[in-house]
Design a protein around this nucleic acid. Structure first.
Lengths: 194, 194
DNA sequence: AGCATAAGTCATCAGTTGTTGACTTATCTG
DNA sequence: CAGATAAGTCAACAACTGATGACTTATGCT
């Protein structure tokens, strides 16, 4: 019983409180966007005073930036000889069909999209997408317009995420992973050949 | 010279003022999203008192709904025998590559995407996309998973719009229409055959 | 010209926003 | 058991939000 003290009166633990605020912020920002979320809401979710946000993160904006930072799964891009269709499959499974429960079921890119009215958010999105996934992806495609074709695949995956979790289009939302994978594979194949 | 009276002191014309507010609202909401835009900004763009917005539109929300309402170009879906690749070409040209200067270069769908934290906006987006473009599109595809394939094409086009005007990915943003059209045609072809 | 009507303005409301500095209180060390 | 240190609270701020009712002023009709 030394593990979990009575849960209601939370112990004073800066690191744990900070982490709890970060989690709550992810959920709120996911649903409601940046402008639609107040620091009082986030603090209330954790059961803590709103002042702690300014104190621990500096400002609401810095909290947001830290909450939606996305790290590319290292395994994806490790092998430079891994074939493109393989990677596309993996991206479909992990990015589009991933559960992302930390963000209420949406990839951080979609979360940022929802707040892209804010220029700082837009920059963050641009950098993380272009210099993260896309650049690596384009390097594996052959031919002259490799970058364009890589971005088309990116657009497809991003668009699928939007359709599934924001628009809520019926077929894409309910289709199985395997059924979707087959069709996406066709598309990737159509772009892989030069 | 009876046409244009001195432009600075605008004449009192309810309809014209209302239309001007609607235009200004489109531009502001496009850039900054719903929450990021204040009625005082919009009114200032027109050079008019903010109270007129509540007066003419009822509320900020109703103004938004009216500003981002999208009407499907009637010519697109008129002929029920028009081949799918044809329609995809037209959509690419008019929706993705359209100038949409009314909305600062973005299709209204992208504008709504940016404010999709708001449930009412999300509903509007869902209805207009699913019951507008997608339903008609799926009806023209043959085979069992026609709806799914239609939504995949929709996802591609939507994703391309996002990449071009929100993310600002380099290749897609600068590629010519013709160059893009060729690649997209390949993709549509890959999905058209059952 | 003069008057009625509607277009537009103004001041102000009540509520919310993010942030800050001074305060209290829990936790750990000696 | 003290007392120091940091975690967390509290009250208040200035700025801004959307909205409203009473006011002023321009327009069009007779």
């Amino acid at each position: 019983m030394t593990e979990k003290p009575p849960p209601d009166p939370r112990r004073r633990d800066r690191a744990a409180t900070r982490a709890a605020l970060l989690d709550a912020a992810r959920l709120r920002f996911s649903r409601q966007g940046y402008d639609g979320t107040g620091i009082r809401e986030i603090a209330a979710d954790v059961g803590v005073d709103p002042a702690l946000i300014s104190r621990y993160f500096g400002s609401k904006r810095k909290l947001y930036a830290e909450a939606v930072r996305v790290d590319i799964p290292a395994g994806l891009t490790a092998d430079p000889h891994r074939p493109v269709p393989h990677i596309a499959d993996a991206l479909l499974r992990e990015v589009v069909f991933g559960d992302w429960e930390m963000f209420h079921g949406e990839h951080p890119f979609l979360v940022m999209l929802r707040s892209s009215g804010n220029p700082a958010v837009r920059d963050q999105l641009h950098i993380q997408l272009c210099e993260g996934y896309l650049r690596d992806f384009a390097g594996r495609l052959k031919g002259q317009d490799a970058a364009l074709r890589a971005e088309l695949i990116g657009a497809l995956l991003l668009g699928m995420g939007v359709m599934r979790s924001i628009v809520g289009s019926p077929a894409l939302s309910e289709a199985s992973f395997e059924q979707t994978r087959r069709l996406v594979a066709r598309l990737v194949h159509a772009l892989s050949a030069e």
